[in-house]
Design a protein around this nucleic acid. Structure first.
Lengths: 190, 190
DNA sequence: ACCTGAACACCGTTCAAGT
DNA sequence: ACCTGAACACCGTTCAAGT
């Protein structure tokens, strides 16, 4: 036995981490395993299934015993932000089973079905936006000017094209969004 | 002058409506205009830009004079759901400029920056899930069994694999999610 | 300014055939 | 069971050249 399905998923996650979702093709994953592209179809029916398995792995660390919805969403967010393009992978795969994922079910026990869906969609969307933003910032950092200007004290407010989108800004924005939704749930339940 | 940028965008939207996002390649758009693929690059720098222009067109009908945030989100949702794969096109393109789109700015005037972002992300995510679900339902309708069983009265609750995801269910779910967020905003602002 | 023709460097997926 | 080799039907993008 040369390779198992788990080997394929692991190789795909290695390619994702190293090269990003854009470059995570069936052919590159196959190359990572030193195998022909067609060999992958012995372990996985198609690329979409492979992405779903990757999403499961990324999200697998989230503790379903968690009783605090905010904590659960934060863990989910951290898991997605922990791997390159993780938010895109999870959001894409998860959208297909909205209403039937383990995390949504756990969340629904805590805050009801509508609350769970609202929290989840916000968490996915915000993580995607955060990751997109970070990517753009990284890219911008490779361009002339405004590199590590924020540290040196060149100017007070203006740090290149980043403007107002610091990492901590996005963390705070996420927390405030969750607060809004949770407040709405309390208010709705009287 | 054979073609203008607007012609390219219009052709792309025609292809999108007819064949979906998957099939909306630069090559197909070029074919729709009876032109070589390379000709498109005279009007648009790359595919991503073309998708952004398509998103602008899809969302352009949303009235920015609207003073009711719920109504604004509903209009946005309707605009996205009005074209095949519209939610994906808009969400993808809009994610890149989160914090700077016209709709988000209008929404921010009404409910603040955090509320605007929360409402927008929920609206995008829910529309994407709705459209994915509809697509799956359409696909399922082509398979044997459980076609229009809901009408005839074969059974009370079970309508094929659709289960609980009727169109009106999703409409209602959207409305309740918006209600939760708006309630949370009222509660947060005391 | 707008377009053609040809090329480059890729894709996902299928399928007969090997071991 | 797991994999190779070869093919099919595509991609986005570039670039010299035409009009």
């Amino acid at each position: 036995m040369r390779n198992t399905r788990a080997d394929v998923v692991a190789a795909a996650l290695r390619v994702l981490a190293a090269q990003g979702l854009e470059s995570c093709s069936m052919r590159r994953v196959a190359a990572e395993l030193d195998v022909q592209p067609s060999a992958l179809y012995h372990h996985v029916p198609n690329k979409q299934s492979l992405l779903a398995l990757m999403a499961d792995e990324i999200v697998g660390s989230v503790g379903l015993g968690e009783a605090d919805p905010r904590q659960l969403c934060t863990e989910l967010r951290d898991a997605m932000l922990g791997v390159r393009d993780g938010a895109d992978v999870v959001a894409t795969a998860e959208a297909f089973r909205l209403g039937s994922s383990a995390i949504e079910e756990r969340l629904a026990e805590l805050v009801g079905a509508d609350g769970a869906r609202t929290l989840l969609l916000f968490t996915f969307g915000h993580a995607q936006a955060t990751q997109t933003h970070r990517q753009a910032a990284e890219f911008g950092a490779l361009l002339p000017g405004a590199v590590a200007a924020g540290q040196g004290g060149v100017g007070p407010g203006l740090t290149g094209a980043a403007g107002e989108g610091t990492a901590s800004d996005l963390d705070a924005s996420f927390g405030r969004g969750i607060s809004i939704i949770l407040a709405g749930l309390s208010a709705t339940l009287r």
